[in-house]
Design a protein around this nucleic acid. Structure first.
Lengths: 119, 119
DNA sequence: TTATAATGCTACAAAAACTGTAGCAGGTAA
DNA sequence: TTACCTGCTACAGTTTTTGTAGCATTATAA
């Protein structure tokens, strides 16, 4: 890795937007590989670094650590006694994306796929 | 680009999950650069390929086309007379993520950033 | 006290994803 | 014909991500 893109802080230019609008910073971060997956996995349970590695089947430790640093700096994730967990803000964010679970079932059905998330 | 990862179809293994659960396919696609941004830009207005390129400041035409192919195959985006637009399912998905706009303002404020999305 | 195992990482080369610039082919309209 | 829009494609260079190995620290326990 020759150079790493900065953490997309709201108020500053990010990938795809020089305006500094918070939504653009958020979409930048959420559009990075595994950001959404990490938030999803940390829902309602703390996980250690190793547990996260396992639950995110293919993430490399290098990248997991990079993402955790970003998400911690963005105050969405923190590291407590029992491992990594969502901050209060992280939980708020999770609650917004929570309906994606149910919606994805409808989506899959509309595409002719039988499998559901609770299979 | 030597090889391109497949489109994350629900019901099939995707990056980070061999289970085929629809939510994992969705998180895979939404975690790809510009997926969320394209959905965001297409909210309530059709945009031509060139207009999308402009509104997504830094996207390359190569990648824009790749994402549009993916999003079309996943039935979230379609190409009509007036350019690209969201399908009905794409609009449903957009409505789920719509609250991210307001939330990102609170998030920015909590991080001590003054700028808002409507500045 | 050594050992066994778990933690949270770091190093680094190879592979994949993305950018940036150029330009092509088709339509339209003057 | 010329000009200008559209939706792309080509491709080299750059950045991101993977995959494997392993290190340093802390805890348990033999």
């Amino acid at each position: 890795m020759v150079k790493t893109a900065g953490i997309p802080l709201p108020g500053q230019p990010v990938r795809g937007s020089k305006t500094g609008k918070p939504i653009m910073a958020l979409l930048d971060q959420m559009g990075r590989t595994w950001s959404l997956g990490i938030l999803w996995q940390l829902n309602m349970q703390s996980l250690t670094f190793r547990q996260l590695q396992t639950s995110c089947e293919q993430i490399s430790p290098t990248l997991l650590n990079t993402r955790l640093k970003e998400l911690r700096q963005l105050q969405l994730v923190e590291h407590g006694n029992e491992g990594y967990c969502l901050t209060v803000m992280g939980q708020q964010l999770f609650e917004i994306i929570l309906p994606l679970g149910q919606w994805s079932d409808q989506w899959a059905a509309a595409m002719g796929v039988e499998q559901r998330n609770d299979d």
